[in-house]
């Protein structure tokens, strides 16, 4: 069964494009990634799903019900974490969470305490005294408090330190194992790859494609930066899978896709000061993969 079904969803803000003909569906029980650069339309899509904004055309259903028409019923079972977390600043964390819980029936209030412990959050602090990361934690707890069947996360990891990200991912996996479906929007490919089974890629307001994460991993680009002690032998890296090769004084940059062992072999014997292997940004991947493949 599909928990979310989006059908030709379009949103224009006046003449300004938000999203155009976005369609995809999310199956029950999966963690679905929604990935695209900033400004591509991820938040617009999500905000339309939550009926915070009204689509210009097209439709979307959640749990088989129309998002706008039955928004209030649907939202009973949705936990949402916005990308920018803001709350009533003069309230205490506990007050905000109690207030949030008061909108749902049958909320287990002891969950506030237990979730706060997992996320290491002080419930007695005032919202305006919290750091950005701690506000995000309030958002996470607020989103998971009522044990929603669908969890919608809009760029959830920004502001969380790596340890917290890890805990957060565990929390999401746990909720998922208990049966929750997850829609996870991000502009960081690696975190989506870690968590998700399928992913929709959005760019300039339209869906570029929907893929299995396994297929995507075939396109697993790594970004290499090599600092040379001596002269750079550019031709040494003239092998299959290397793209975007640039030389910048004594530094060599390139993207590599393929068997990592071949690259490790190739690196032997090179006289380096430093070597950096990174996850390329989504923009870089778009430039070297999606753009090329989508052009006829």
């Amino acid at each position: 069964m599909n928990v979310i079904e989006i059908n030709q969803l379009t949103k224009y803000y006046g003449k300004h494009r938000g999203i155009e003909n976005v369609s995809f569906s999310v199956e029950e029980g999966e963690i679905f990634g929604f990935i695209g650069p900033n400004g591509a339309g991820k938040s617009t899509t999500i905000r339309a799903l939550l009926s915070l904004i009204h689509p210009t055309s097209g439709s979307a259903t959640i749990f088989g019900k129309d998002c706008i028409k039955y928004g209030n019923e649907i939202r009973r079972d949705i936990g949402y974490l916005p990308s920018e977390v803001f709350y009533y600043e003069h309230m205490k964390v506990r007050e905000v969470l109690n207030y949030s819980a008061s909108f749902y029936d049958n909320v287990d209030y002891t969950r506030i305490q237990s979730l706060a412990e997992v996320m290491d959050l002080d419930l007695n602090k005032r919202i305006d005294d919290l750091s950005y990361g701690n506000k995000k934690k309030v958002g996470i707890i607020q989103g998971l408090l009522h044990e929603p069947r669908l969890i919608i996360l809009d760029e959830p990891t920004g502001g969380l330190d790596p340890l917290m990200q890890q805990k957060f991912f565990e929390l999401i996996r746990m909720e998922n194992q208990k049966g929750a479906t997850v829609l996870f929007s991000s502009h960081i490919l690696s975190e989506v790859q870690k968590l998700c089974s399928r992913v929709a890629i959005i760019k300039d307001g339209t869906i570029v494609r929907v893929e299995n994460i396994r297929d995507m991993q075939k396109h697993n680009y790594k970004k290499f930066t090599l600092d040379y002690r001596g002269v750079i032998d550019v031709h040494h890296f003239n092998l299959e899978g290397v793209t975007n090769l640039t030389v910048d004084e004594s530094t060599l940059h390139f993207l590599f896709k393929g068997d990592i062992n071949r690259m490790v072999e190739r690196l032997q014997g090179q006289n380096l000061i430093n070597l950096l292997v990174e996850e390329p940004s989504l923009e870089e991947i778009f430039m070297h993969y999606y753009q090329k493949e989508d052009q006829p």
């Binding site: 939550l50 915070l52 209030n72 939202r75 949705i78 920018e84 803001f86 709350y87 949030s100």
Partner: peptide, 17 residues
């Protein structure tokens, strides 16, 4: 104004409520 519309209007209530 306080950027918390996302908080209250994603609760399971209609706007008039």
């Amino acid at each position: 104004r306080d950027h918390c519309a996302d908080f209250i209007y994603t609760k399971p209530v209609r706007r008039f409520q």
